[in-house]
Design a binder for these strands. Structure first.
Length: 472
DNA sequence: ATGTTC
């Protein structure tokens, strides 16, 4: 793969073969996937062949190998020019994302309460494969209400306060959800799982603000140094997974009827303006609302635990997805166009004064939340004016070692002991799962964030460190 | 990520 350095933080994959646009990789020499033996830059080039793609196939500094599209990839297609939508460009965990809550509490006030708080969280946060959630829905009709209403419906049903919605991307509810486009199996998998964490890299952490890079912006976000926070990282569970599975198959079968050829079957796609394209976007929006409601429910579980052990409330800082395709307007080559922007393991970071921001965040830009790995830092970022890649940045540290390799090389018991000895309380579910998520399996999140900021994708506002980890 | 193998 020909990868040409253009600046310290930007690399170009020139057009070759069937590529319609170049690949642009925001990274550093040290973080480039080729340095770790990962094939994701070939996936960046493959994505550049999709019908209707505009400007470039982008990769963020945490890019790594994924299903068809790389994780840490951004691709936008022009809807009115035959642009496609692809489930592989969203990922299996539709609207997977992060929610950050700020406690009215500082670290020194937490000391003796941390253990009992973690015990309660450990007992009340449902997690692990196939596990049911905290909200047992009455029936399929109520699940439809969730799929249409998202976090807004959860709040209206008493699970949260109206102010929460002002701090959710899309105010907690995306439009145009079409629950009828979900298979019976997707509905069945979703019915019992609302208010559950899942497994893999999903977590609920108690964190402390370790460093503030911009006091004024942090204050607007409701954050200050030494403050206790809760970060929740989860998505749409089995429901979203089933939607992706169903529509990859549908599109794989339908693709040839639209004359579309792709270099990898995992890039299955159809035009946005097609029966299958509309069906997928409707199903995806429904799964998105499920994920938004899911994070709302888990926030309520955390609030109950904090209320009981500390008396402190938890104010929502923000809730943002990093696996989604969104129809957005962007200026391309001097003309405003409707684009289908795929962000897979990439986070939207709206710049200051963007019309989709709430009024009180207009001056700061969008809060952007980046979960680190267990035992390392997480970050609060803000969107910046003039950012490339359709206002997107990274989504995490980025895996460099497979789950299998990590489980072979890391002992879960020892990892738990290491974390505990550093003052981080751990409430896991499986020793293997813990080992698979060892920090050694990931890039250095601090280097990833510095690369994202250096590339002009975002700016740092605050860094958080964990003091308690609840793992699926 | 995921009832980790239709």
């Amino acid at each position: 793969m020909d990868v040409i350095p253009e600046t310290r933080y930007r690399f170009r994959i020139p057009r070759h073969g069937p590529m319609r646009v170049p690949g642009i990789v925001y990274s550093t020499r040290e973080l480039l996937p080729e340095a770790t033996g990962d094939k994701s830059l070939e996936q960046v080039a493959n994505v550049a062949t999709l019908p209707g793609i505009v400007t470039a196939s982008y990769a963020m500094p945490d890019v790594h190998w994924g299903y068809g599209f790389p994780i840490g990839g951004v691709a936008a297609t022009d809807v009115s020019a035959g642009g496609v939508v692809s489930p592989g460009g969203v990922g299996f965990d539709i609207s997977c994302g992060v929610r950050l809550l700020a406690a009215q509490l500082d670290q020194d006030q937490l000391a003796t309460a941390l253990g009992p708080l973690m015990d309660t969280l450990g007992h009340t946060v449902p997690r692990g494969l196939r596990r049911g959630g905290t909200w047992q829905l009455a029936d399929r009709a109520q699940l439809y209400d969730v799929l249409l209403g998202g976090a807004r419906y959860a709040v209206e049903a008493g699970h949260g306060v109206p102010r929460d919605l002002a701090r959710c991307e899309d105010a907690g509810q995306v439009p145009d959800a079409a629950p009828g486009r979900l298979s019976a199996r997707a509905i069945e998998r979703g019915l019992g799982q609302l208010g559950s964490l899942g497994s893999g890299n999903h977590f609920l952490e108690v964190q402390v603000v370790d460093e503030v890079f911009d006091e004024a912006t942090a204050a607007v976000f409701g954050l200050h140094r030494h403050q206790v926070c809760v970060m929740i990282h989860t998505g749409s569970r089995g429901l979203g997974h089933q939607v992706c599975t169903d529509y990859v198959r549908t599109m794989d079968e339908a693709m040839s009827r639209y004359g579309i050829r792709v270099p990898d079957r995992q890039l299955a796609c159809v035009p946005v303006n097609s029966a299958q394209g509309h069906a997928y976007l409707g199903a995806m929006a429904a799964a998105t609302n499920f994920a938004r409601a899911n994070r709302q429910l888990l926030a309520e579980t955390a609030r109950r635990a904090f209320e009981r052990h500390t008396g402190a409330g938890l104010e929502l800082v923000y809730d943002v997805s990093h696996n989604l395709a969104m129809i957005e307007s962007h200026e391309v080559d001097g003309r405003w166009r409707r684009l289908c922007v795929h962000r897979k393991g990439a986070t939207r970071a709206l710049p200051p004064h963007h019309p989709d921001l709430p009024a009180d965040l207009a001056a700061t830009g969008q809060p952007t939340l980046i979960p680190g790995t267990m035992g390392t830092s997480s970050y609060v970022l803000a969107g910046v004016t003039g950012s490339p890649a359709f206002h997107s940045t990274c989504h995490g540290a980025g895996r460099v070692r497979s789950r299998h390799a990590a489980a072979r090389e890391v002992d879960g018991h020892r990892l738990r002991d290491d974390l505990e000895s550093r003052g981080i309380a751990v409430r896991g579910t499986s020793w293997r799962g813990l080992a698979e998520e060892a920090p050694a399996a990931y890039k250095d999140v601090d280097a990833v964030i510095d690369a994202a900021e250096g590339a002009g994708l975002c700016r740092k506002v605050a860094r958080l460190v964990p003091v308690g980890v609840v793992k699926g």
